[in-house]
Computed example of a mutant assay.
Amino acid sequence: MKLELQDVVARHPAARPDAVPALRGLSLTVLSGEQVAIIGPSGAGKTTLLQIMACAMPPSNGSVKVAGELPWAMPRSALQRLRGRLVLAPQVPPLPPRQRVVTALLAARLPAMGLWASLRSLFYPADIPAAFEALEQFDLGDKIFERVDRLSGGERQRVGLARALLAPAALWLVDEPLSALDPTRSRQAMESLTVAARQRGATLISTLHQVDAALAHFPRIIGLRDGRVAFDLPSAEVTRERLAQLYDQFENELRGEAPPQLDDTSPTSPQPVVMHCR
């Protein structure tokens, strides 16, 4: 799925109307099947950019094309169908805490299911082998019948990533997928995502704080700072000098010292569930 953004201006979803825009005249194109990492210091506009790409919010200025279509010029029903062709994996997955992992996982297929099939899947999961296979990619097969609220933060994050493997989507948008994972789990997660996207011909775009992981797993790197594209290069051309400029005054993040948002060692308390309606 191809993305085209031209002169996009947008504010963070939680920002005040008079706040400085998170994206300031940003332009870029991502071709179908590409794998792109978006890096940059905190506050660069990475999450807002994913929200724009996911058709979750309109820009306040500029144009956005997804698969050649203008999402915000579409009827609502057509926009919902377009959203059903992509998956947005937030840093904290919106998994219902009392739901079993298998049910939460197979919910990724709801955009392609009818009403009765969707309701039935809540009580009788339709494709347990497929769910197990997706979980195994992240070393979580033994958790398939666990309740979500009994998982650690890192396990919840990996379940959220496994949902992408089951979604009927041509565009995978992944926000900070490694924030709760140790180095070994991080490598495993990145390999699983990139290999699966490549096999399916899906476009994969991920924001990352871990610069080394971005360089190791993605052929194209976009450096974002102050809501603008600082550079857009093949990973082999991203030098330490460019990174030093991108992270100027944010050296701790360049060294990978940004504090993790989740804990991978203990179960998380139930979080509010935020649903992204398709």
Rank of each mutant, 00 (worst) to 15 (best):
I128Y: 08
F138I: 03
S152I: 01
L181P: 03
S42K: 09
E253W: 00
M53G: 07
L23Y: 07
A258D: 00
T239K: 01
A167V: 06
V195T: 12
P94N: 05
E133W: 01
W172K: 09
L31N: 15
F123A: 02
S60D: 15
L49P: 09
A170K: 15
S118I: 02
A162R: 01
P129A: 03
P259Q: 11
S118M: 13
L193R: 06
P75I: 04
A89I: 11
T203H: 08
L110D: 11
V159M: 04
L86C: 11
K65D: 10
L243S: 03
A258H: 10
A104E: 05
L262S: 06
A213M: 15
F145L: 05
I38V: 15
P59L: 14
Q199M: 05
P129H: 01
S121T: 04
L79R: 14
P17W: 15
A37S: 13
G25K: 06
P59S: 08
L151G: 01
A107F: 07
A15L: 06
V195F: 05
F218W: 13
I222F: 12
V273C: 09
V66G: 08
M1R: 03
R83P: 09
S192N: 05
A15R: 06
L122Q: 08
E4P: 04
F231H: 06
S269K: 06
T103S: 04
T207Q: 05
E133K: 11
Y124H: 11
F145C: 02
E241F: 00
M113Q: 15
M57S: 05
P71G: 15
R240L: 11
V9Y: 14
M74A: 12
C55N: 12
T47D: 01
M190L: 15
L26C: 10
G154F: 09
A170L: 13
V195Q: 13
Y247S: 07
I52T: 05
F218P: 08
A104H: 02
V238G: 05
Q80F: 14
A44Y: 02
Q137G: 07
R278P: 13
A112T: 12
R81F: 07
F250I: 00
G153H: 03
D232H: 10
L95K: 02
P259L: 11
A73Y: 04
P129V: 02
P94S: 11
M190F: 11
L115W: 13
V66D: 10
L88Q: 08
P97Q: 04
L106S: 04
